[in-house]
Simulated scan of single mutants.
Amino acid sequence: MSDDSSDTIDTRAEDPNLNQSSVDDIGTANTMRERSGETRVKTWLVLDGSRLLITTMLALLIFGVFVFGGTFYYQYYLTDALTADTVETVFSTMISAIITGVTLTLTISQIIISQENGPLGDQRERMSNTMDFREYTQEMIGSPTPADPSAFLRAIILESRDYAKDLRESVADSDSEDLRGEVDEFTNSLVENADAAEDKLEGRKFGSYTVVSAALDYNYGWKVFQIERIANEHRDAISQETEMVLDDLKTVLSMFGPAREHIKTLYFEWELISLSQNILYLSVPALITAGFVTTYLGGSALSGTVLGVPNLIWVTSAAFAITSLPFLLLISYIARIATIAKRTLAIGPFILRDSQR
């Protein structure tokens, strides 16, 4: 999703029901999963779960399917193993796939590393842009900008929460009951969302998905839209003090957008490098297993059974699951990265999903 934010194009004149819908949906759920309507199981498998654990689970699934299927079709499989060199053919193909996968992984690593290299002028510009953003953030939050990514995002979120409380106080004496009601609902939702994100960010180290998850949970774009809507619909009832607080709150939320995108970009690079390293580590035992089975087991059949299952089924199933580990690891990492990228395609108040359209 694009942070469950909203399009800022004013279509209320064309659709009279949009205004009422916007008022009714000021408050939002505090997590991305609740807003998107995904199940806990799917969210854990695609995003929250350890990528190594997910890879292991996929390998066990393959192993179980092969054992279960091989037990029922063992006679056909035994004939093929002895006459058609099925085992040798399968694992010879796996050797080629492993080598190709490692080559692809090295290519990905080279692309990532190349983005960090460049002439002195480019590096100076990167540094200048970073320091400008940090200085502006320091002026906004009134304290030195934290160096830790999780603390950096947490500081901006806490600042937006403080401005939300100031906004609530600024309209407390307003004669407009509608304005007070909408601001109260909006600020309550923002404060609860900020508290939830703050708790998830506190003490977290960069490199874990929790930091990015908390950033995705804080749907700043939808809040920016609500500020614009409230300022437009209640312009006659808003005092100068309230208008200033709304502008300050909008500025803080707008700063959260590029900050989140920067942290997300660093996380993607971190994850892709970790993926490359882990695939290289797994490719060695996978290659050894495939080579061993091809050389010493291809064209033969193991005798005996264990737990009523032929040894040939046990060995080939385990070998295939092990040789599949690099590819399964790639699936688990790309599933998370692709999901995050899809849900953060747009920056700012735009809706790309149906969660709050």
Rank of each mutant, 00 (worst) to 15 (best):
M140C: 02
A290P: 06
N278K: 07
S213F: 04
P285G: 08
E241Y: 01
F186A: 10
S2H: 03
S276V: 10
M244V: 09
T105W: 10
A147G: 13
T28F: 13
A164Q: 12
E192G: 09
M57K: 05
S332Y: 00
I98F: 07
Y74M: 14
G308E: 11
V315P: 03
L282R: 04
G181D: 15
T103C: 05
T105Y: 07
R12M: 10
V87R: 07
I108M: 13
S150Y: 03
E241M: 07
E269K: 13
F320H: 08
K165C: 04
S2Y: 02
R336I: 07
R343Y: 03
T39L: 05
G37N: 03
W314S: 03
D217R: 11
F186W: 11
E269R: 09
L275M: 14
F133Q: 04
R154K: 14
T103D: 03
F72V: 07
I288W: 06
S189P: 05
P326A: 08
S128M: 12
A147Q: 14
G118R: 11
W44H: 05
H234I: 04
L82R: 14
G64D: 06
T11D: 10
L153G: 04
D354A: 14
V212I: 14
V284R: 10
S36A: 13
I273Q: 08
A346Q: 13
E233Y: 08
R168M: 01
E241T: 13
R260P: 00
S317T: 05
L52Y: 00
L297F: 09
G27M: 02
T39R: 06
L60F: 07
D10K: 07
D122I: 15
F152I: 06
A155R: 01
I98Q: 05
H234F: 09
S274W: 00
A301I: 12
L275W: 06
D178V: 02
S317M: 09
D247W: 04
V90H: 00
D217L: 14
I331F: 07
E139A: 13
V315T: 05
G257Y: 01
R168C: 00
T28V: 15
T295E: 14
I108T: 11
Q138W: 04
F225I: 08
R40Q: 08
P258F: 01
A318Y: 01
G49C: 08
R260M: 01
I340D: 01
I340H: 01
E271N: 14
T89P: 00
R154F: 02
S170I: 08
Y74E: 15
F206P: 02
Q356M: 13
E169G: 08
E88T: 00
I337E: 01
F225T: 09
A321M: 11
T210R: 05
N219L: 10
E38Q: 13
S160R: 06
S128C: 02
L120C: 01
Y296S: 13
Y333L: 05
I9Y: 11
Q75E: 04
N278Q: 04
